[in-house]
């Protein structure tokens, strides 16, 4: 009778040589220690900052909605306008680009053009685009609108293209077999398959755009971000706290309502 082992360990999957494994581990730990050692910490500044931070927190605890309400409501209004318009325009432009960037629908040259547009849009972070566009079009919500539309294109087109590439080919094949044209194929076989996801992504992008509108406002692209920046610059932490609370509330409302809506879309 043969005896079989009673212990078993999962064999290493990535680095199979034990010596290499140890060497790698040591190297990573050494780099971590050296890296942490090179971070300069100014303890005096931290103590001082703690006090400022406390004032900020106190502002939060006693938010002042009233004394700057006019500025706040203007900023909010502007932000919400930027958010909605840029999402609608961005999504509208994203649809043709997304279709063009789907390998199974577009010829190679269209595919490469659309993929480059997406890569460009995704490579540049919103704040960088906003700085550039504020320089071009001046301070104000128009620059913000353009920034967020451009950022939306990269986001929606990429995810839409990926969704189109993942469709059930059999349904497309069946529609093609009826003698349908390319446009009819897109409308009858592709659109029904990707629509729920497209709507979900657009709603998701809507609340990303609202959050981003608060950030790009800081570099002068209009909206609630500008108001927030002014409040902090003036050390009016109670007003800043009020603004942050409003942003949090709106994002939460957007989050819950979009997930509620998405449930209906299957």
């Amino acid at each position: 009778m043969t005896s079989y082992p009673t212990t078993w360990r999962r064999p290493p999957q990535i680095v199979t040589d034990r010596r290499w494994r140890i060497a790698l581990l040591v190297a990573v730990l050494a780099y971590l220690v050296i890296g942490l050692g090179s971070v300069e910490v100014n303890w005096a500044r931290i103590v001082e900052g703690g006090e400022r931070g406390m004032r900020f927190v106190q502002g939060f605890l006693q938010p002042d909605f009233t004394s700057r309400w006019k500025d706040i409501s203007n900023g909010l209004n502007e932000s919400l306008t930027i958010t909605l318009t840029s999402t609608v325009v961005g999504v509208a432009i994203s649809i043709p680009i997304g279709i063009g960037a789907a390998r199974n629908l577009a010829p190679a040259w269209v595919y490469y053009i659309c993929r480059s547009i997406i890569a460009l849009s995704r490579a540049l972070q919103e704040v960088i685009i906003a700085i550039f566009l504020v320089a071009m079009f001046g301070f104000g919500p128009f620059a913000g609108f353009l920034t967020l539309s451009f950022a939306t294109i990269g986001f929606i087109s990429k995810l839409l293209a990926e969704d189109i590439e993942d469709i059930d080919e059999a349904q497309a094949e069946a529609i093609r077999a009826t003698g349908a044209s390319w446009l009819q194929l897109v409308h009858y076989a592709i659109q029904p398959q990707v629509m729920p996801r497209l709507i979900g992504l657009s709603l998701y992008r809507l609340d990303i755009n609202f959050r981003e509108s608060a950030v790009i406002g800081i570099v002068g692209a209009g909206g609630i971000g500008g108001t927030l920046n002014t409040a902090i610059d003036r050390y009016e932490y109670d007003s800043a706290g009020a603004i942050l609370l409003i942003i949090i509330a709106i994002v939460m409302v957007a989050e819950y309502s979009s997930s509620y809506l998405r449930k209906f879309l299957q």
């Binding site: 059999a170 094949e173 529609i175």
Partner: peptide, 15 residues
């Protein structure tokens, strides 16, 4: 293609 009807294994209906 209009002259040729096709029926598929997994039905291939647009769900």
């Amino acid at each position: 293609r209009r002259r040729i009807g096709m029926i598929f294994q997994e039905y291939a209906l647009v769900e």
